[in-house]
């Protein structure tokens, strides 16, 4: 399998003046296409920091992050924005939907920022509807986030992450705010997406979630402390 993303001795320090917080102290990792990774570890171990770097939301202090053959650590803010828009789908713990928008409008948001700003065509709209159907929201297109349950909101976020057909989908504790039944449904969607061939990285505390993934990475104090392959 070709490698989608490669981390080379990735470091992230937060300079707070009095102290420097070393959130990541040198992480190296290869992520092949079609992988399904769970990042685990205790709170404060650097999982979110790592995922933010993987999601091109931030630049590393040191080291390289090569995504689709390009080093993001040297990218401008504009280039990072384009990477976020086209190569990555991000799912948050707190859903992060735009409250005044309907389900359909929320799914459309990444289309607004495509490189070159192509117009949103009828085909694009149909794709939004297809994706919404895929995550089981076909009958909720005109609803607003406050009219939806947490699980439904997270489905909107997943549909939104899928709309630009990204290479990698990242989720930072996507089920942290959900009950266990809904958690299972969400993980099922992610598993289905992985089965379609998408690369998925999910930060989680839940062994039940990690169990569904192909590979688990354990973080401790900003370093990869161990790795397991499940099942196996």
């Amino acid at each position: 399998m070709p490698v989608v993303a490669r981390l080379v001795d990735l470091k992230k320090f937060y300079d707070l003046g009095a102290v420097v917080v070393k959130a990541l102290r040198g992480v190296s990792l290869d992520i092949p296409e079609g992988d399904f990774i769970a990042i685990m570890g205790s709170s404060g171990s650097g999982k979110s920091t790592l995922l933010n770097l993987l999601g091109a939301l931030d630049r590393p202090t040191e080291g390289q992050y090569i995504l689709n053959g390009r080093d993001t650590s040297q990218m401008t803010d504009n280039e990072l924005s384009i990477v976020r828009n086209t190569d990555i789908g991000f799912i948050f713990q707190s859903f992060n939907l735009i409250t005044q928008y309907t389900v359909l409008e929320n799914i459309e948001v990444p289309l607004l920022y495509r490189p070159g700003y192509p117009p949103i065509t009828a085909r694009d709209r149909n794709r939004c509807i297809d994706v919404a159907n895929q995550v089981g929201l076909g009958d909720r297109l005109d609803h607003r986030p406050f009219q939806l349950s947490g699980g439904q909101q997270q489905r909107v976020a997943i549909a939104r992450a899928l709309i630009n057909d990204p290479a990698i989908i990242m989720a930072d504790e996507p089920t942290g705010n959900l009950d266990s039944k809904t958690e299972e449904e969400i993980i099922q969607i992610l598993t289905d997406l992985n089965n379609e061939g998408r690369t998925i990285i999910v930060v989680t505390h839940e062994p039940g979630v990690a169990k569904k993934t192909k590979r688990q990475i354990y973080m401790k104090d900003g370093l990869v402390a161990g790795e397991g392959v499940f099942p196996g």
Binding site: L57, S81, I82, N85, N96, L97, I98, V109, Y113, R114
Partner: peptide, 16 residues
């Protein structure tokens, strides 16, 4: 601010 963060995470550039 939150909405701005969401848009930026989804690919909005500064000039957008």
């Amino acid at each position: 601010t939150r909405e701005i963060g969401i848009r930026r995470a989804l690919g909005a550039r500064r000039r957008d």
